[in-house]
Design a protein around this nucleic acid. Structure first.
Lengths: 225, 225
DNA sequence: CCAAAAGTGTTGCTTGTACACCCATGT
DNA sequence: ACATGGGTGTACAAGCAACACTTTTGG
């Protein structure tokens, strides 16, 4: 059956978060064509006839970073008529969390992409600022409902590193003692018998996420100061 | 500029919630064409060249219920390739809350639509069951982050009516005393000097939402049993 | 020795939960 | 009189916030 109805360009845009040097960053590409040449943009791509928007987002992510099997979450559809002055394009935004020690740096570097700290973003094209804000809310929401870090930190990490990640995500400090107690009480971390001695004199135990992926979180977990 | 990329049918589907007789219901239409004739469906419509998806959803809602200026929230995009066997259609789902005392009953009745209790739904076409589940989660999420009822209850209502609404939304009982204290502590309700004497012997004060629409909710508000 | 992070403990406060209890009134 | 919902109060538990304090070790 053929529907006699308008067809539209549908794109996906990926808000790609990474964590590096104590800062939450996101990956942006310089735009080299008019209009708005010189500004920065999210990486996107058009949805094809034979794929879901989730597939399209994965495809875009793999094409640009070399990564597959990455955690992604749908943010929202952005569809104001004039959002892209060049053409009518509806965009479905996705938030992706990637580990900066794993992406294909060669590939990313070639394309001119750079990591930008979330609180020091450059000028962005179209409504990409709004899309990023949405992706950031999605990330915060996820981080308060379950313990994230597996997607952003190295395999083994100290509780300080995890805390700094959360401080970057929520842009506010957490009390070290309370953070430690809360996080450990969730029972999703396993202490290793190795210590990190580079970031403190005393040395801090490394932790890792213990396999049992799905713990039933009853409620919002982060109300820590 | 013309983009040399695929164009797709983009639809909106509205999950329309109403509250009546102590039950949370949603409005469904019988499908009278093959395939899946006889099953029920959400009301939807195609997004036009010159409108945002939000506009399209509003338009669909107004066309089917006569209502405008209704609270709506985007749920998510549903885009599996085979979701509509007739054609490739991406659907953006919206959740709408309407007051059953305000919609155009004539219009709705003509179209054959019926209100179905959320826990006794008929067979649904395509992935509309999944879409409804998403809309329901969106509703619950909103109801736990702020006090809803303005959109679903009459202008004046008793605290019992409000509680029954919340019990319908969360499908579990709330303690009457605790519910009352929590709700009143939010400071968004104003007590009227009228009593409802039809639903209890003693009579219960009517309340209404006081104008100041936006109260800053710091945290999830409903953790009441 | 001092600074800085690691790690543990304590205390007070807020908030939810589970009740008990009295009130008002229509039947 | 009694059942029913209206409305208030209380006692307990859980969880968070704030902060004190001890440990360890590199500089």
């Amino acid at each position: 059956m053929v529907y006699n109805h308008p067809k539209l360009h549908v794109a996906v845009d990926c808000v790609i978060f990474g964590y590096e040097e104590g800062e939450l960053k996101l990956l942006l590409w310089p735009r080299d064509i008019e209009p708005e040449s010189g500004k920065w943009s999210l990486m996107g791509g058009f949805v094809q006839e034979s794929e879901s928007v989730e597939n399209a987002a994965m495809r875009v992510l793999q094409r640009t970073t070399g990564l597959k099997d990455v955690y992604m979450e749908q943010v929202a559809a952005f569809s104001e008529v004039g959002r892209d002055p060049g053409a009518r394009v509806i965009s479905i935004a996705f938030a992706a969390l990637i580990r900066v020690d794993k992406y294909d740096k060669e590939l990313v570097h070639q394309s001119g992409a750079l990591w930008w700290p979330v609180n020091k973003l450059p000028e962005l094209i179209f409504d990409h600022g709004e899309i990023i804000a949405g992706g950031f809310r999605t990330l915060q929401s996820r981080a308060s409902n379950e313990l994230i870090g597996k997607e952003l930190l190295p395999d083994k990490f100290t509780l300080m590193q995890l805390r700094l990640l959360y401080e970057a995500i929520f842009q506010r400090p957490f009390d070290p003692g309370n953070f430690r107690k809360k996080v450990l009480s969730l029972g999703v971390l396993e202490r290793l018998n190795i210590k990190n001695t580079t970031e403190s004199k005393k040395g801090a135990y490394y932790y890792k996420f213990n396999g049992q992926d799905e713990v039933a979180y009853n409620d919002r977990i982060f109300k820590i100061h």
